[in-house]
Design a protein around this nucleic acid. Structure first.
Lengths: 197, 197
DNA sequence: TAACAACGTTTAAAAAAATCAACAACTCCC
DNA sequence: GGGAGTTGTTGATTTTTTTAAACGTTGTTA
């Protein structure tokens, strides 16, 4: 590998502050395994693990999975280990971040940026407001509780109107749509993982 | 690539039910991007994306990261996604599942069992109620919005009393405690990922 | 109908990662 | 001190992935 590529690779890793090599070394040592012992369990060579840990090559997903199986650890767990240093914990009502204004208002709990796994919203739908004719679809799961007013929620082929105290929960991959059919504004507290918008 | 290796690769993917190709295709299409458009944004060729999506090769972490940057999406998000088949979507107020009864009441939105990534709760703290002297600590992140009454929330060294409309968000690994200091019951809608309790 | 553009797929050559086998450094034990 | 065992690292070769450029299909337009 050329030194140009080495630095390019290092750059790539620096982008997300996610250092595959350092993390692998960290979890391997945490379990008290040598490179060779892990290699034996994973069915790869010790050289492979050495090179990965030094970031001298970037393993394929297939081989990284083999290595992690030797620990054992899932790919999701491996990549989920990021510790977003969290600053603010408490948010006054007027501090919530306005993601969308107008007939549909989404006010987010928590900082706008930062790599989080959860999104909590205080939603407000004006009478007649609608998330749109084309259904929403995205990764993850979402749920919520209706505080005031009524909302007509369509999920896949199912449709229902919910009132105060009622709730919903579904995988966000199903096409979905929110509409306020009534004369009164509707308020919802919702959560979504991973964050959308 | 030999057909033996093809099946071996397929086997590897089947182990965790994690299909890199299918997932990439899914998230790409969810964002309305063509293979070529994503390739352009990611700085790779369209052929690469085609081969990955067909599981005809297993991308290196470096190149998968490049591709995901074009979406954009982090590696952690990519590997965290699983698709639990969901049955019930709508939940009437009286259908919420009572997880704990008494001074502190947690009523959960969504089915009790099933492998979910999100937990949405309607919480109610009687006057003086408390989650306990010993602080809570668990994996994940949590957030919520106060509906009625007041709650005294302690997170790490920080402590604050929140009222209606106020909110909180923190990594659940920090020791935390909820206490209702007032003469009035406190209601909260909260969310937590991954589910706790 | 033909021309054109966009799409996903495929093939041969170039680039990168995995293996195999060696190397130096270190500990332990006699 | 010397030998056997372990550790992590490194070069030469093999295997796999990525690229670049083509192919076949589909939908649109003149």
């Amino acid at each position: 590998m050329s030194s140009i590529m080495e630095s390019a690779l290092a750059e790539t890793n620096a982008d997300t502050d996610f250092d595959v090599g350092a993390r692998l070394r960290s979890v391997r040592e945490a379990r008290g395994l040598s490179q060779r012992e892990l290699a034996r369990r994973a069915g790869v060579t010790n050289g492979t693990i050495s090179l990965i840990e030094q970031n001298k090559n970037s393993p394929s997903v297939a081989s990284l999975k083999k290595v992690l199986d030797g620990l054992p650890m899932t790919l999701a767990e491996f990549f989920a280990l990021e510790q977003p240093p969290q600053d603010q914990v408490f948010f006054r009502a007027e501090e919530l971040i306005e993601l969308t204004k107008g007939a549909v208002s989404f006010r987010q709990v928590g900082p706008r940026e930062g790599n989080h796994k959860l999104q909590v919203l205080h939603e407000r739908y004006a009478p007649g407001a609608d998330t749109g004719k084309s259904m929403l679809r995205h990764e993850g799961e979402e749920g919520g509780v209706i505080l005031r007013g009524h909302i007509e929620l369509t999920v896949g082929e199912r449709r229902q109107t919910l009132g105060p105290g009622d709730a919903y929960y579904f995988p966000s991959t199903l096409p979905h749509r929110f509409r306020n059919p009534g004369p009164e504004a509707c308020e919802i507290i919702s959560a979504c993982t991973p964050p959308y918008l």
